[in-house]
Amino acid sequence: MTDSLDRGEDERWRSSLLQLIYGDDVREATDALLALSLDEPDREWIEDVLLRLLDAPVDRQVRELAVTCIGHVARLHRAISQKVIARLHELADDPELRLRVPNALSDIRVFVKNS
């Protein structure tokens, strides 16, 4: 019974943060994205969120932070999917993200074995 309650609370927490991330207040969005990236235990789920944000119609600061958060996820989980690494390489020439991409890739190289 406790597990189902915890999952319900997790879903409400995720949902409330996602609403802020896709909202109009950039400060709230970036705070929520950072909280989600640092505290979400499901690496695959947060990777999917971050990948979606890279192409979402959100403020530039939110997209930039999504790249930075990929590095945080790699550091915290000591893993990252090849799909994320490939997407970062694709974004290396993106005018809005190209300055953040090398830092995220560096974090991955440092914290993820066999990346």
Rank of each mutant, 00 (worst) to 15 (best):
T2D: 05
L5T: 04
L5D: 02
L5F: 03
D6Q: 10
E11A: 13
S16G: 10
Q19L: 07
Y22K: 14
Y22H: 14
G23M: 12
D24C: 14
D25E: 10
V26P: 12
A29R: 02
T30H: 05
A32L: 04
L33M: 05
L34E: 01
L36Y: 02
E40L: 05
R43C: 07
E44I: 03
I46D: 04
I46Q: 01
D48P: 04
L50E: 08
L50K: 06
R52H: 09
A56K: 10
R60V: 14
V62G: 08
L65V: 01
A66F: 01
V73E: 06
A74K: 06
A74P: 05
R75M: 13
L76I: 06
R78E: 14
A79R: 11
A79E: 11
A86I: 11
L88P: 01
L88K: 06
L91P: 07
A92L: 01
D94T: 02
R98V: 00
R98K: 15
R100N: 14
R100S: 13
P102T: 12
N103M: 13
N103V: 15
A104P: 07
L105R: 02
L105S: 08
S106W: 14
S106T: 15
S106R: 15
I108A: 12
V110E: 15
F111N: 13
